[in-house]
Amino acid sequence: MNAFRLAGDMTHLLSVVVLLLKIHTIKSCAGISLKTQELYALVFAARYLDLFIHFISLYNTVMKLVFLASSFSIVWYMRRHKIVRRTYDKDHDTFRHHFLVLPCLALALLINERFTFREVMWAFSIYLEAVAILPQLVLLQRTRNIDNLTGQYVFFLGAYRVLYILNWIYRYFTEPHFVHWISWVAGIVQTLLYADFFYYYIMSWKNNVKLELPA
């Protein structure tokens, strides 16, 4: 495993830790999109179907379990926890996320690395992850006071995607057989979605002012 991949996984993990810190410790999910969190739970459930079939490494298995458990527990907290769910900004989290699922499934049936159940579900999870951040970005645009933890959460998620692209470039040159067009194209699309956010995040950090996205 190269350094970009490890750094990418660590920023991904860090984003989850930041979000859990906000939810578990501060008991708030203000500014967090439940729709995005539900999509991520679905992404991990679809992608990690091979969890108990293919053993890759202990690291791989543990990380998969962490992402599965954390994504489902975040959804649980936002829907069911007595205090946390009251902080959920339902009125602004209006993105019709269900409409993302079917097109991603259709695309996965058409474009996959192999027409088997697990490969189609893998491609589906890749496509869905690429667009899963959209409800969150829309909610951020509508949020007046974006708190630091929410901003950091989205920043780390975006950083994870950038690092994965660097990881693919590295792997392309060091592992001649490593060609995964599906994840590369979807990953680049996914990263581009963060471009606007990154711009405003870095500007707010540079100018030491509160993060706010223009509507």
């Binding site: 991949r5 996984d9 991904h12 992608r47 091979d50 293919h54 890759i56 490494s57 791989n60 990380m63 998969k64 992402f67 690395e113 192999r114 490969e119 893998w122 994965y164 990881n167 057989h177 490593f178 060609v179 995964h180 994840s183």
Partner: peptide
């Protein structure tokens, strides 16, 4: 012929 490799990324 290149076979798709196992998905070893997260």
């Amino acid at each position: 012929d290149l076979e798709p490799e196992a998905h070893d990324e997260l």
